[in-house]
Design a protein around this nucleic acid. Structure first.
Lengths: 314, 314
DNA sequence: AAGCTGAATGCACGAACGTGCAGAAAGGGT
DNA sequence: ACCCTTTCTGCACGTTCGTGCATTCAGCTT
């Protein structure tokens, strides 16, 4: 259609030749408002990519400190202290979406977890068309009330749409009721295929769950865990999870029974991804986050300023 | 200094979080105008990169045609027919600069020719800091009147500054007076070093000279060639040059005497660069351009619309 | 400390921009 | 062919932005 060509031409004239929208409108024989809208679509569809490349030497103190203390590249999102937790999450998610997109390339295999944080991120993605990329779900999302498919698949599909990528769902509950079921399923070829895909991830994206999060993670509130499961987690000093795989404050996971029934990737499995981006918003996540860092799950960390301060002040 | 941090923070808040300049000004406790200026520096210094990724399927007819006829990726710069040749060149150069920059990466070796076109391109570069890159001069620039160093080095240094790259000059005349001098020099280690660098180019950037260009290329006007040289070129049906290495309409170069005295890269040498970007503005360049295409010197072509039309209508 | 000079800041104004709204155009079904 | 629904367009308005100019600030010299 005629439209696409106009979008491209407008983008070129505006971003590569610095014409005003007025001038472009005359060029394309249309109104300035239309040009404004053309440019908006150009940005939304990823035709125009805007990237902020913060070289480390100008990054603020905080990011240096985090790099030094935990060995991860941090992106501290400046969030005015006045805004509430919900809006802060939204800001961080927007920032994360914009930061991640430039690093997505063709032939990527991107593992994506689900949860409130990833959902927020997915809602802010701007598209960047790539070829032959795959979005792969990191862990099952079903619980006793629902198969969780619509919720988690919405997240995945937004990623898929943004990058023009194939979406591979993991249609399983988050936790099996019995260890044996997991063992059995893990020998199924359909599952093996997913695990194989997961082990070829070029990037993994996830939030973190924290057992005493004030703004509770899905897992701890949404009917995934029984009362006794929660007690068991507490008994094993669990502080949080990544993709429904639990760990203690020191990052250790041994002997936590629930992991035997979880569909989430073990740390060994997850660490096969060279790039592991963790998005965190909210001071309540601090304990889970520390555990995830101790476990070495994270290579890049995107978090709000307040949580970042908490992290380095410990 | 405090400044850098503010530039980064402003860029993040503006481009990654969509705040207005007003809001950012309050955040940084400064005036909106200052924020406007901070953002301007963020763009100039390459902290913010803006890229237009024109996927082929929405590219206009012309670019497809050129791809089909000549096998090169074309970027047709829309230039309103009202503007003069000088301004058209400027537009094309601006466009070229913006198009090239996103493809420059760390560890790149970039060969750059000189001439009116490359000079214009160099003036429009926006910076993008990279590590360990090198700008290497493709051909000598001296003539009987001057060593040409200041002219060509200005071009090279603008590239070097923009990408934070080392600059390797080629302090030779464009043409030797005697074939023997060239042969002798080509055995010098200093020259061998340059040639070695050139053969490791990841990208080459050049314009084209055309013998009947209305807006004459430097080479044909600037005292580089004697009267008899011009006659000799005409006698061998030369239509143009790339980096002072001449060719005929069919791209052939055999038996053109002047090439034996030229410091420019042979086609064999030039083609070692996987990416060879040719920038052309002005209908007068059409014959030279066709020759360059016939010789297979070009992998990417950036040119104005009028010349593009001429090219496909032949 | 005073004086000088160049850079950085804020103000104010005009230019450039985004968007709700109402009307026009384009589909889609009967 | 008609009507209905949906999408697209241009206008008008309020907002946001860039920049010349006067002022202040910071760094240096004497």
């Amino acid at each position: 259609m005629r439209k696409d060509g106009d979008v491209l031409k407008a983008a070129q004239l505006y971003y590569l030749q610095d014409l005003t929208m007025d001038a472009i409108a005359r060029e394309l024989r249309t109104s300035r408002s239309t040009v404004s809208r053309l440019l908006a679509t150009a940005r939304e569809t990823g035709l125009v990519q805007i990237e902020v490349r913060s070289s480390l030497d100008m990054a603020p103190e905080l990011e240096h400190l985090i790099k030094k203390l935990f060995g991860v590249t941090a992106h501290v999102v400046p969030v005015p202290s006045s805004v509430g937790e919900a809006e802060a999450l939204d800001r961080v998610a927007l920032y994360a979406a914009r930061t991640i997109t430039p690093h997505v390339d063709s032939n990527a295999v991107i593992g994506v977890a689900w949860g409130a944080t990833m959902s927020a991120v997915s809602r802010h993605l701007t598209s960047k068309p790539t070829h032959n990329s795959v979005i792969v779900q990191l862990n099952g999302a079903g619980n006793t009330h629902s198969t969780g498919i619509s919720y988690s698949s919405e997240i995945l599909h937004r990623f898929g749409r943004a990058y023009g990528a194939r979406v591979e769902q993991f249609p399983l509950p988050a936790f099996f009721d019995h260890v044996e079921t997991r063992q059995a399923m893990w020998r199924e070829r359909s599952v093996e295929r997913m695990l194989d895909l997961q082990s070829r991830m070029s990037m993994a994206l996830f939030g973190v769950g924290s057992v005493e999060s004030g703004y509770p993670s899905h897992v701890y509130a949404g009917g995934y865990l029984e009362r006794e499961d929660l007690l068991s987690l507490a008994g094993h000093q669990v502080v949080g999870d990544v993709a429904t795989y639990f760990f203690r404050a020191d990052g250790s996971t041994d002997g936590i029974p629930l992991n035997g029934r979880s569909t989430g990737p073990s740390h060994e499995q997850l660490k096969k991804a060279p790039r592991r981006v963790c998005v965190v918003s909210g001071a309540g996540k601090i304990n889970g986050l520390k555990g995830a860092l101790a476990a070495g799950l994270v290579t890049e960390l995107i978090l709000d300023e307040k949580t970042a301060r908490l992290l380095v002040e410990s």
